[in-house]
């Protein structure tokens, strides 16, 4: 932890024209840490991740990835430097096969792992994908597509994994499966920042968490700590 954090976000402001989706947001993610940002629908979670991976420009503030400002760096170059953003809605290529989806995430970012080894690691974690390797990704179930999206992080481990709503649209059983896979990532020492509407799943998983409300960070703490304070959760998130 003596090193600079993998990700530093300092007072950023992001908007779509006159609408300010993120008004004031600062957070840190240290190496090997798993951090969640939770918030209601429309709190600005997706916007926050898009700003970090430079899919959206900043209006103010600064974002540093691996000690360097992301200003002026393009999304695909950040990706090659190890910032892997798994967008909302899985982000798999529906008309490509499972194998091709894994292959392309392995081949466009530089890695030292041989493809056969990477593939074997993916299939060990997700045996379902091995069965369906020749199938088009679009024909997989929602849960399997999420597995495939996560498989990218195994095929080619990133320095920072950004996950946008990994539980979106999944059945409770599949949500549990997805978080089981994420816990293994955590055990591997992967650095993860995820945003979630599913507050309980995210807080149980993350070591630290921030609460985002209408574009502002309004509270932070350990996952367990925030979970133990139902009044505050209710106040900020309007949930039980």
């Amino acid at each position: 932890m003596a090193d600079a954090p993998v990700l530093e976000v300092r007072g950023i402001k992001v908007g779509y024209g006159p609408i300010k989706a993120i008004r004031d947001c600062s957070l840190d993610v240290a190496a090997g840490e798993t951090v969640a940002v939770v918030g209601a629908n429309g709190a600005g979670k997706t916007t926050l991740l898009r700003a970090i991976s430079r899919m959206l420009p900043l209006e103010a503030g600064e974002i540093r990835f691996a000690g360097q400002s992301v200003a002026g760096r393009r999304t695909h170059l950040l990706a090659r430097d190890g910032l892997l953003h798994v967008p909302e809605g899985r982000g798999v290529m529906p008309n490509l096969s499972v194998w091709e989806n894994i292959r392309i995430s392995w081949e466009v970012r530089p890695t030292e792992i041989a493809f056969e080894a990477a593939l074997q690691r993916v299939f060990e974690r997700f045996p379902r994908l091995a069965e369906r390797r020749m199938q088009r990704a679009g024909t997989l179930s929602g849960g399997e597509q999420q597995m495939l999206a996560l498989a990218r992080a195994i095929a080619n481990p990133p320095r920072l994994l950004l996950l946008d709503e990994p539980s979106l649209g999944l059945s409770p059983i599949m949500i549990a499966e997805a978080y089981k896979a994420l816990r293994q990532f955590q055990a591997d020492g992967m650095t993860i920042l995820l945003v979630e509407q599913n507050v309980h799943a995210a807080l149980r998983f993350a070591q630290r968490a921030y609460i985002l409300k209408q574009g502002e960070i309004v509270a932070q703490g350990t996952g367990e700590g925030l979970l133990a304070d139902p009044d505050m959760l209710k106040h900020y998130l309007g949930s039980k």
């Binding site: 999304t75 695909h76 170059l77 990706a79 982000g91 290529m93 091709e100 995430s105 081949e107 466009v108």
Partner: peptide, 24 residues
């Protein structure tokens, strides 16, 4: 060649392709 897959990825979903590291 791998280039075909890169083209496929850009066609399928530009945003995802970019997030994978492809200069779309």
């Amino acid at each position: 060649t791998p280039l075909q897959r890169i083209l496929d990825a850009v066609r399928e979903d530009e945003l995802v392709a970019r997030s994978l590291g492809i200069n779309t």
